[in-house]
Amino acid sequence: MLEQKLKSPKFFKSISIVKFLPLILLIIALFNSYFIVIEGHVGVVKRFGEAKGQENPGLHFKIPFIETVEMIEVRTRKNAEKMASSTKEQMPVTVEVSVNWTVNKEAALDLFKRYGGLTQFEQRILDPRFRSATKDTIPQFEAEQLIQDRASAIQGIERRLAEEMEGFPVVVDNIQIENIILPQKYINSIEIKQTEKNLAAAEEHKLERQRLEALRAVNTADARAKGILKIAEAEAQSILLKGKAEAQAIDAKAKALKNNPLIVKLTEAQAWDGKLPSTMMGEGVMPIMDIRDKSESN
C-alpha cells in the first residue's frame, strides 16, 4: 500500500508543491510588500485594521499580510439630491440640487478614523445636513422668486450648509439648483400670466408707435407751416424793401428836378418826337386854331 502511494503521480506532485511552497510564499510576500498611491488620493495604512498613517501619491512599502492600505480620494466630489419641499406660499415643489465637496488632504487620516471612509461620511454626515440646509432654505422663497432668483436660494443653502459643516475636515462649495419641478397648474398659470404680459407689452408698443407717428405728423405740419410763414415773411419783406426803394428813387428824382430846372427841359427834349403840336390853346378866349399844314392834313 505504501509502495503504491510512493509510486503514484499525486504523491510526486504533492512533493513538488511542498518543495516550491517557500518560493511561492516569498513571491506573494514581495508583491504584498509595496503599494502605489495614485494622484488625487492618499493612502491610509492600516495594521490589523488600525489606521496608522497616510501616504501621498507615489510608491510606498508595507509589511506583507499585516498592513493593508485604504485609498481616500482628495479630489472634488459631487453629491446630487432630489428632494420634496414647499415654497413660502405652501406650494409643493421638488428640487434637484448638487454640491461639490473636497476632503482636506491633511485630514484624510482623521476622517477615516472618525467615519470609516468617504462613503460612510457622505451617508452619515454630508447628505443629511445637505438635505436639511436645502429644506430649510427653499420655504423662504415664493415660487416665482425661486424661479427668477435662484442665486439667492443658492446663497441661502450655502450659508446654512457652511454652518452645518463647520468643524468637519471637508470643504463644501459650488452648490447648484439643477432643476425646480412645480405643479402643472402653477406652470399653466405662469404661462397665462406671461402671455397676458406679452400682449400688454405689445399693445403698449403699438400705442407708443401711434403716439410717435402722430407726433411726427404734428412736427411735419408745424415745420411746413413755419416754412410757409417764412416764405410769406420773406415775400412781404421783399415787397416792403422794393416799395421803399422805389419811394426813395421817386423822392430823389423829385429833389433833383426841383434843384435843377434844366433837367425838366432835358427830359422834355428827350421825350419830344420831333413834331410840332397840332393845336394850341391861347390865352383868354382865343379860339382853337388849326395851324397844321394843309398838305399834312391831306
Rank of each mutant, 00 (worst) to 15 (best):
F168V: 00
S189T: 11
I239G: 14
V172D: 07
F112R: 03
K255L: 10
R114G: 00
L199P: 02
L161G: 10
R75D: 14
A221Q: 06
A107N: 05
K206V: 06
R292T: 09
K242N: 11
E233W: 15
R129L: 07
A214G: 02
F20S: 15
A223W: 14
K105Y: 05
K226S: 07
L26Q: 10
Q148H: 08
R129K: 10
A217F: 08
G43A: 04
V74S: 01
L6E: 05
D290H: 05
F12N: 09
I147D: 02
K253Y: 13
K46S: 09
K242L: 14
K113N: 03
Q120C: 04
Q210I: 12
W272G: 05
I228V: 08
H41W: 14
L146N: 00
I239C: 14
V171E: 05
P128K: 00
R159Q: 10
V44G: 06
G282P: 10
L6A: 02
V103I: 08
M289W: 07
F35P: 07
I66C: 01
K52F: 09
P57H: 01
F130M: 02
G274A: 03
S85F: 03
K275H: 04
E144Q: 15
F20D: 12
F11W: 10
V95H: 00
V45W: 07
R124S: 06
Q140R: 02
A236I: 13
Q210V: 13
K244V: 07
N188P: 11
D173S: 10
L161M: 01
K46L: 15
T94A: 01
L257G: 01
H41Q: 10
A162Y: 12
K82S: 02
I288N: 06
R216T: 15
I192P: 05
T220G: 09
K294R: 12
L182T: 11
I15S: 09
L111T: 00
V172W: 08
Q120N: 08
I228S: 12
D251P: 08
T279D: 12
H60Y: 06
E55I: 15
D222V: 13
V264L: 13
L109I: 04
F121E: 04
T68P: 07
L266S: 08
H41N: 10
K52I: 07
V37Q: 11
